[in-house]
Design a protein around this nucleic acid. Structure first.
Length: 547
DNA sequence: GTATGCTGCGTTTAGACAGCATGTC
DNA sequence: CTAAACGCAGCATAC
């Protein structure tokens, strides 16, 4: 029951030192921390509370962390909120937290007073080969956390092995082994098309000459010395950008817009004709207005194309509500039951992008319920459902799940419930919301350029709801400074539903709901200068839990 | 009766960069 | 199909 990792951790504490324990999964980070925390005699009540209270409605993850932290132990992974991570780092530096069990989050960048690094396993799951050895580079990063010069004269890195033969293998592979070479990723398609558009937009690439000049100077060219291959990928990307009308190419027949309607030809095996490898001089490339904006927004052109296509569909749906698709649109009362809403199509649109990856994974148990939600909303989706046997189908289903999570968020579902229902942790929620905000902003910008005024409002509204995590009904109240989802909801439930209601409400009542200072601030903002709000008969604010 | 522990089985599996413009509880 | 380990349910054991 007491395994080597636990013993080492306790021994480190007894030495008066601190340790980092690297583990291969988030679940095991939490479990290891929890187990070790049961073995210490430390008691830090203030930290226990601080960690718990970073969210209005703490999740089970917050509770678990706070229990560990109380005993001077912590776990650290991408699922934590950044305030929590900051607390852990601060307290580890202060020497109150003794041990942090972490995934590779802490393997690079940070300098902490770590005397000992304990690596529980050098294997990690990989899609292609089950549990696989991690790169030597990563081992070095982890080991390098121990004995930082600012804190320690000496550091130890200890790798736990399960068998004698594994010990041999680890020794030769990691201790004696050379770190891997670094490879350029420039030729990876999403990367290349993004940078190609950016280079064209910033006018660094204008023609054949400036293009080869630039790419010849890249690390990719230096490393592979295989310009023909790079050229062929570049030409393929250029052709795509041109077909998507993000750039215009002139003076070269091979990459003209002539076949922009035949996407099939661009995917065919002969996408690079012999002549396009050897183009006549005089080819000129220019960004289109949209292309330039896409590049400023840092969107992958493929994503931009996807957003534009969906916007097109949205526009059509809004324009003529009599289209067959819209006849089946769930407009009747029964649709109230669906967890999704009008926003679902746009949320699914942003969920089904490379930028949103990794999407929320649909677990086998959820398959049916997600499918069900899909069929409920199928008719209003902005893109076509791929074939069930398509390789991309699972990703599509995951985009539905991700969209459902967003739907939950903008319907004021708490983070604790989202964790249970969608297996998404607070830290991950933050990240997803940021990406959603970025993509919705980008969508809005693209809509502006394609003159779809009427759709812009819809997008803007959704963006606000994502930002605050509220139902549409709270939006009027959120215009006020000092009012977020929590206070807005409190006021709304007390019958204060818009700025007009706020004018009418008695300052004393308002301060009972949101507190005196905030109430005064609100009244000031709507033009009612209140000299002094009488002190309420009851202290403090009404608790939200009552509603 | 109840807390604890063991076994077997099914299920899951790390992380993080972009735009924009500031202020939630 | 690859592999380890987590979580949970069901059940045995110790008190």
């Amino acid at each position: 029951m007491l395994d080597d990792t636990h013993k080492l951790a306790i021994e480190t504490i007894n030495l008066g030192k601190q340790a980092l324990i690297f583990v291969p999964s988030r679940a095991s980070a939490e479990k290891t921390a929890e187990e070790i925390s049961k073995l210490t005699t430390i008691s830090l009540h203030d930290l226990e509370q601080e960690v718990l209270k970073v969210i209005t409605f703490p999740t089970k993850q917050c509770r678990r962390l706070s229990h560990c932290v109380k005993k001077g132990i912590a776990f650290h992974h991408s699922g934590l909120t950044s305030p929590q991570k900051e607390i852990l780092e601060r307290e580890f530096r202060a020497g109150r937290i003794k041990i942090i069990c972490c995934t590779p989050t802490l393997a690079a960048g940070l300098s902490l007073p770590v005397y000992r690094v304990i690596i529980k396993s050098l294997r990690r799951f990989s899609e292609k080969s089950g549990m696989d050895w991690i790169p030597v580079l990563e081992y070095l990063q982890m080991a390098g956390r121990a004995g930082r010069p600012e804190y320690e004269k000496l550091g130890e890195a200890i790798v736990i092995t399960k068998t004698e033969s594994e010990k041999e293998e680890i020794y030769s592979r990691y201790i004696l082994g050379e770190p891997e070479d670094i490879y350029s990723k420039l030729a990876v398609e999403p990367v290349l098309r993004t940078y190609l558009l950016s280079l064209i937009s910033s006018r660094i690439i204008r023609d054949e000459e400036s293009m080869s000049k630039f790419f010849l100077q890249t690390f990719w060219a230096h490393q592979f010395q295989d310009l023909p291959r790079l050229t062929s990928i570049i030409n393929r990307m250029l052709k795509l950008l041109s077909e998507w009308q993000f750039v215009t190419v002139s003076g070269d027949d091979n990459i003209s817009n002539q076949d922009k309607n035949s996407l099939a030809s661009s995917n065919g095996p002969d996408f690079v004709s012999a002549s396009s490898l050897n183009k006549p001089l005089g080819m000129k490339v220019q960004p289109t207005a949209i292309g330039k904006r896409i590049s400023e927004l840092y969107l992958d052109p493929l994503t931009a194309r996807h957003l534009l296509d969906c916007l097109n569909q949205l526009s059509n749906q809004n324009k003529d509500p009599e289209t067959p698709e819209n006849l089946t649109k769930p407009n009747n009362n029964s649709s109230q039951i669906t967890s999704a809403s009008d926003s679902f199509p746009l949320l699914q649109m942003i969920s089904h992008t490379l930028e949103m990856r990794p999407l929320l994974r649909t677990k086998s148990k959820e398959q049916d319920s997600i499918q069900e939600e899909l069929t409920k909303n199928y008719s209003i989706l902005l893109e076509h459902e791929p074939n069930v046997y398509d390789l991309e189908y699972p990703e599509f289903i995951d985009s539905i799940k991700t969209a459902l999570f967003f739907c939950g968020w903008i319907n004021e579902i708490g983070e604790d419930y989202l964790l249970d229902k969608y297996d998404i942790r607070p830290g991950e929620i933050k990240v997803k919301l940021e990406i959603a905000d970025w993509l919705l902003y980008s969508t809005e910008e693209l809509a502006k350029l394609t003159i779809r005024r009427e759709d812009i409002n819809q997008i803007r509204k959704l963006r606000l709801r994502i930002k605050y995590g509220v139902k549409e009904e709270l939006l009027p109240l959120l215009k006020l400074k000092g009012v977020g989802r929590i206070r807005a909801r409190k006021m709304f439930n007390q019958g204060i539903k818009d700025l007009g209601d706020l004018k009418k409400v008695d300052p004393a009542n308002l301060s009972q709901i949101v507190g005196r200072n905030v109430a005064a601030g609100i009244k000031k903002q709507i033009g009612d200068e209140v000299k002094e709000i009488p002190k309420g008969t009851r202290k403090g604010q009404l608790s939200l839990s009552k509603y």
